[in-house]
């Protein structure tokens, strides 16, 4: 009877190991959750790579990469305004009234032209509404499209390549030098600085007097 009672209440020998296991788990599980959340909820995971399907299979790789059109041919407001403006149907019809005029891929473009209703392009890059962003302030000061949108000239479908998070904006506002180029080359996709980007950027920054602000009211107004 007493013998039985003793064996019932004594922990078996393997529980000694269990103490170690539980100790390790108490450290590993929170660490795991932190890594999972930090890695999984980072804008680099959730936002980068967004490439919505567009109503027309329009390809920048063809029009920019092969035909060599400048970004400003279509995104005409990018140097004057905050918005870069997706082009109106008329811009497509400049050429497509006569090139590939019967192509089934361009059916909705012709429809839009005939009816006057806009093509429902799907927005790719979208900052939260409480952020103020201005294209002209960047493009006219020598930050190229490629720094924020990547190699658009190789994209069949536009995708977001940068996180557009506050940390990302600030990284560049604190150290813009590696991203600077002569402002007239802002739309060039394959431009490389003639010397070390840091040195070149530093000189350009002094020449143009570039001082990006990191005050909260610059972007939250």
């Amino acid at each position: 009877m007493s013998d039985l009672g003793e064996t019932r209440w004594v922990f078996p020998r393997w529980t000694n190991q269990l103490r170690v296991v539980v100790g390790v788990l108490l450290v590993v599980v929170p660490l795991y959750l932190v890594v999972l959340l930090g890695y999984g909820a980072s804008p680099k995971t959730t936002d980068v790579g967004y490439a919505p399907e567009q109503p027309v299979p329009y390809s920048h790789a063809l029009h920019v990469g092969q035909l060599g059109l400048d970004c400003r041919y279509c995104h005409t407001t990018v140097e004057q305004a905050a918005e870069a403006a997706v082009p109106p149907t008329q811009t497509c019809m400049n050429c497509h009234a006569r090139v590939r005029a019967a192509s089934p891929k361009l059916l909705s473009v012709r429809e839009s032209y005939a009816t006057g209703l806009p093509i429902p392009w799907v927005r790719v890059h979208d900052l939260p509404d409480y952020v103020y962003f201005d294209h002209s302030a960047h493009v006219r000061r020598g930050v190229g499209c490629v720094s924020c949108h990547g190699r658009v000239d190789t994209m069949e479908v536009v995708r977001q390549v940068e996180p557009l998070s506050m940390g990302w904006c600030l990284d560049c506002h604190r150290n813009p030098e590696p991203h600077l180029r002569p402002p007239e080359l802002a739309t060039s996709m394959d431009w490389v600085p003639p010397e070390d980007p840091e040195v070149y950027g530093k000189r350009l920054r002094q020449q143009l007097g570039i001082r990006p602000s990191t005050e909260c009211w610059t972007c939250h107004r």
Binding site: D47, E83, R159
Partner: peptide, 25 residues
Amino acid sequence: ARVTTSSVPRLHLIGDMDTQPYLKA
């Protein structure tokens, strides 16, 4: 998810004031 593209918009678990009742350009 980090190396592939997706055509699904990102999830807004915490909406903050990301979409406000005004219209962008």
